[in-house]
């Protein structure tokens, strides 16, 4: 799959797809989308890049091992779930900022939870796929 077309295309596709994935993530609370789909789209973006340019290049581009995204994501989700407990509310109670933000709508702890999901999905998917491609 070392075609010039794919190589060139993937160079532009990666940022575009990543942007799209973040868009899907953020609008998830109002329209179809969310952390799962967003994470999967981002993962596909990286996989596509790896196919075109080789795994080493993609990993260089990412700088960190995708596996690190999993604990980070878990931590974000856990903190956003536990944050209400600091305010003496039960685990996972939604907290909301009073003023709405454009595109996203109301800013709340549920969004951070979804961001955690997003990161875990990217991390897990890429860890699985990269590990398999590495060990032939």
């Amino acid at each position: 799959m070392n075609t010039i077309i794919l190589k060139t295309a993937s160079k532009y596709l990666l940022p575009l797809l990543l942007l799209f994935s973040i868009f899907v993530l953020l609008r998830g609370h109002y329209l179809p989308g969310g952390g799962f789909v967003g994470g999967l789209i981002a993962a596909i973006a990286f996989v596509l890049h790896a196919f075109a340019n080789g795994l080493e290049n993609t990993q260089q581009l990412m700088r960190i091992h995708p596996g690190f995204l999993m604990p980070v994501g878990l931590l974000i989700s856990a903190i956003s779930g536990m944050a209400p407990m600091l305010l003496n509310k039960p685990f996972m109670t939604g907290l909301w900022k009073s003023d709405p933000v454009p595109v996203i709508g109301s800013l709340g702890s549920a969004l951070f939870f979804d961001i955690g999901v997003y990161l875990v999905v990217i991390g897990a998917t890429l860890t699985i796929l990269f590990t398999i491609s590495e060990t032939r």
Partner: peptide, 25 residues
């Protein structure tokens, strides 16, 4: 209650958030 309009997503990240937490684990 959860200020979301996509009910599926609201269930996942809010109403049944603990389940989703376990799922990502």
């Amino acid at each position: 209650m959860a200020k979301g309009k996509n009910v599926v997503n609201v269930i996942l990240v809010d109403f049944r958030g603990a389940d989703t937490m376990i799922e990502i684990v």
